[in-house]
Amino acid sequence: MDPLSTLWETFFDVDAMREALPEMLTVGLPNTLILAVSAALLGSVLGLLLAVAGISRSRWLRWPARVYTDVFRGLPAAATILLIGVGLAPLGMQVWGPDPYPLGILALSLIAAAYIGEIFRSGIQSVEAAQLEGARALGFSWSDAMRLVIIPQGVRRVLPAWVNQLIALIKDSSLVYFLGLVASQRELFRIGQDYAATTGNESALLLAGLFYLALTVPLTHVVNWIDGRLRHGRPATAPADEDEDDTDPALAGAPEGDRR
């Protein structure tokens, strides 16, 4: 066989892909999504707490937030996942058994929170001081003013950077394979790697890569779309004053402070 077709067979063996496809769809994709979405939610909540602590007037909140961010941003993700996933495993064993997912999600969340916290903090700090003054003058306490007026605006401004972090999270979710996964726990990367290892053919791993791209590329476009909307505002539609519906399609799904 000539080298070129060998290369082609190594990466684009359709039969090998077809063999791996069902398990990727039914096991790998759901597991990757479970890891990424859970860590995104937990990481965003923790990130918001870190952001607020980071701008607090009390150094007892500011300093721990600073140290936390430095540590979890500074360590390699693989090291953090192993340290937490393996280091806390005996503890986890007593609470929920041998399932590596809770600790994997925890580790991913802790890493994401460090980045998301910085993203949210920069957004919150970009909101003009006059907004805080306006809210305080109405009689809102500092914490209410932050919660209702400042944070919703600040978070909106950094939604593109936040989505970027979700993309990183989807990719990093592949690292939980370090923790040892039984067959039903494997996510996309691990399934692709297993097939590649048993067949000596990389096509299944390439297929896993295509799954990641199918998740992340649309998200990058969501980033661009949000960014454009925030920069240019909503496209002109009917005059807003006659419009009885005051929901804002540009920000649907955005963290809301003003509607509850």
Binding site: A130, Q131, E133, G134, A135, A137, V149, P152, Q153, R156, L251, G257, D258
Partner: peptide, 8 residues
């Protein structure tokens, strides 16, 4: 500068 809340 009015200080209205632009997100509402």
């Amino acid at each position: 500068q009015f200080n209205l809340f632009p997100h509402m």
